[in-house]
Design a protein around this nucleic acid. Structure first.
Lengths: 110, 110
DNA sequence: CCAACATATCAACGTTTTTTGATTGCCCGG
DNA sequence: CCGGGCAATCAAAAAACGTTGATATGTTGG
């Protein structure tokens, strides 16, 4: 088992890409202790409105956050499912036991 | 505890960036069951030599892999330490318990 | 219905990342 | 020493990404 398909790899790359930006990580960190509306994130991170909106979209497209509209505000929160998926993905990349004992002394390309 | 500094965020973004590419993830996957030399990776992924070399450098700079020279070959393997770090980082982003119960019903920006 | 507001979307731009092909440095076998 | 093979590096072109400012959409209070 545990042979990743091309699709798994694609999905993982997308997830990691969404996580590869400091602003986005800061947003996730703010959301760790609960829902926040865009304006709060904006204040605390002092990021231009459209910039923040862009990053929220990336996070949302990756499934890392969920939005909830309430009147003229939109509240964002973490999507726990995806964080579980992320943990599994990362666990899957850990070096496997029964791994290392391979090609000792032999030239590699015979 | 567990308040991430700006440096933590920077480091995490760097790590995630290194993981955000399909070719690099495929390399890591191949390395899961042991050391491989560049030529083997090249064959199996069929990637141009300089392209692969570029991606290996990204992985190495991020600390995800280690290289070992042997004659004219270079063997790459996973760096387990960094994968542990990665797991910790990811665990740190999981939604915290005692999180959700916040701003119910109240408008957000009063 | 209007004005003010919160957020999303868009197009243009500059920046960073990735790809490609050529070159270079190294090591080995003869 | 020479020729050939492996891998790193470089420069230039291509592609992806993030930022900005302007505009659009939907909402609410008056």
């Amino acid at each position: 088992m545990s042979t990743s398909t091309a699709n798994d790899v694609r999905r993982a790359a997308r997830l990691f890409h969404a996580l590869s930006d400091e602003t986005r990580l800061s947003v996730l960190e703010m959301l760790r202790d609960g829902e926040r509306c865009v304006c709060e994130l904006q204040d605390e991170l002092d990021a231009a409105q459209s910039r923040l909106s862009f990053h929220l979209k990336v996070l949302k497209d990756a499934g890392l956050v969920i939005d909830r509209k309430e009147g003229r505000w939109v509240h964002y929160s973490l999507n726990p499912e995806t964080f579980t998926e992320l943990q599994d993905t990362v666990a899957g990349f850990k070096p496997s036991r029964r791994a290392m004992p391979l090609r000792r002394g032999a030239a590699c390309c015979d």
